[in-house]
């Protein structure tokens, strides 16, 4: 790892100012960025830690009943504290392993937008709002392809707001070596319809399966998915599974999620 200057501001304003410097980068829990820097795939001149900013920590319920999670809140804290949205707490409690969950943060996960990460599926299926130091971004506009998001240079995720659904479930088919999702499906049922978001599968990163959403909005039952499938084209094919295999898993995991959501 190349050396860098380390800064640990106490406020969002100071972090934004520090990130304005030449080749400065935000550091969340470091569970992705530190390994990336060890491989010299990133070599910022300054790392600005977000872990000391108390206004980016913690979980609360907003005036509209939505669940608000500070951008630097760890997966472990979400697992323990997001009880009003059990499917989300459950997702957080199965990211990586306990030590990874004690450092890794929701903001880091969403900023990184790994095509196999878990939180992007929850944010997209919930129609979450990603709040940054400058604006609010709807999840539908936020995810822009593998490792690509609507964030600008130096922009930080300060909070993520999840509308709490009537019923929801996340089903993760674990890739056992990495512990990421080989395919993960998040299903969320709201008064105005059902949303289905799939991670791990597409070369375009997390996506909504709109055909399944329409069928489930009409009838929230496993049988509503009978006959629905996704094409293997555009799906990730690697040594762990072909595109066709992942496409097949998408339908299987969606059924399991609907079944478990009840």
């Amino acid at each position: 790892m190349y050396n860098f200057e380390f800064e640990k501001p106490d406020t969002i304003a100071d972090a934004v100012a520090a990130l304005g410097g030449e080749e400065a980068q935000a550091l969340g829990g470091g569970q992705t960025l530190i390994p990336t820097m060890k491989q010299r795939l990133a070599s910022p001149a300054t790392l600005v830690s977000l872990t000391g900013i108390s206004e980016m920590q913690g979980i609360c319920t907003g005036d509209d009943g939505s669940l608000c999670i500070g951008g630097a809140t760890t997966h472990g804290a979400v697992a323990a504290g997001a009880g009003v949205y059990p499917a989300l707490a459950d997702l957080a409690s199965h990211i990586g392993d306990p030590a990874v969950r004690n450092r890794g943060t929701i903001g880091g996960s969403l900023a990184n937008n790994d095509p196999s990460a878990c939180y992007p599926a929850a944010a997209l299926a919930s129609g979450a709002v990603i709040k940054t130091n400058t604006r609010e971004i709807a999840a539908d506009d936020y995810f822009q392809g593998m490792f690509d998001t609507a964030l600008n240079e130096g922009e930080i995720i300060t909070e993520v707001r999840f509308p709490v659904p009537e019923a929801a479930n996340y089903q993760k088919f674990v890739q056992p070596a990495s512990r990421f999702a080989l395919v993960g499906v998040f299903v969320a049922k709201y008064a105005d319809g059902v949303r289905v978001a799939i991670t791990g599968a597409s070369e375009g990163g997390v996506f909504r399966w709109t055909e399944a959403e329409a069928a489930l909005s009409a009838n929230f039952a496993v049988s509503a998915l009978d006959g629905l499938s996704l094409p293997g084209d555009g799906m990730i094919g690697d040594l762990h599974g072909s595109g066709d295999y992942r496409a097949h898993l998408c339908a299987v995991m969606t059924k399991r999620a609907v079944n478990a959501a009840g």
Binding site: F6, K8, G30, Q31, I34, S49, V100, N102, R103
Partner: peptide, 10 residues
């Protein structure tokens, strides 16, 4: 925590 993936300064 995994101490190989945390900075001493943190």
């Amino acid at each position: 925590v995994k101490s190989c993936t945390m900075l001493a300064a943190e």
